[in-house]
Amino acid sequence: MGKHLVLRLVAKIFIPLILLFALYVQFHGDYGPGGGFQAGVIFAAAFILYALLFGLDHARTVMPPALLQTVAALGVLLYGGVGVASMLLGGNYLDYSVLAEDPVHGQHLGILLIELGVGLTVASVMMVIFFTFTGRRG
């Protein structure tokens, strides 16, 4: 624990803020700049910072690779599922207007859901790539 004490302490203060900011970027993407891609990368960056300072094993305990792979697939599935849902409700594929009574509300709901899917996939794929690259020895 003696090594990089200052860095570790600062990171411990910063990581919750980074995660919170990622969630803000994710769910405020409709109103301000941001969205699923940005939020996913920021979310992953927090865990990559954690892995850089506290070691890969700790990071893997927090975020098990099996969970990450499942979540990466779930994100794409959520995105495609919204498209299928709008088809089942009588619209075109990925036409969100039919998701709610009011077309504009439907668009809001659809955008929120697919941005969530994007965010999940991007965050977990970034972490998967990082963990795989750093976990490989020689």
């Binding site: 109103y31 668009q107 955008i111």
Partner: peptide, 25 residues
């Protein structure tokens, strides 16, 4: 049509939904 203040989001997620699905894939 979309009613989202951030136009980038509305183009990316709704008008160009197919493209974004491709990007995620």
């Amino acid at each position: 049509e979309i009613g989202v203040p951030n136009m980038v989001t509305s183009v990316l997620a709704s008008y160009r939904g197919y493209d974004t699905l491709g990007e995620v894939t």
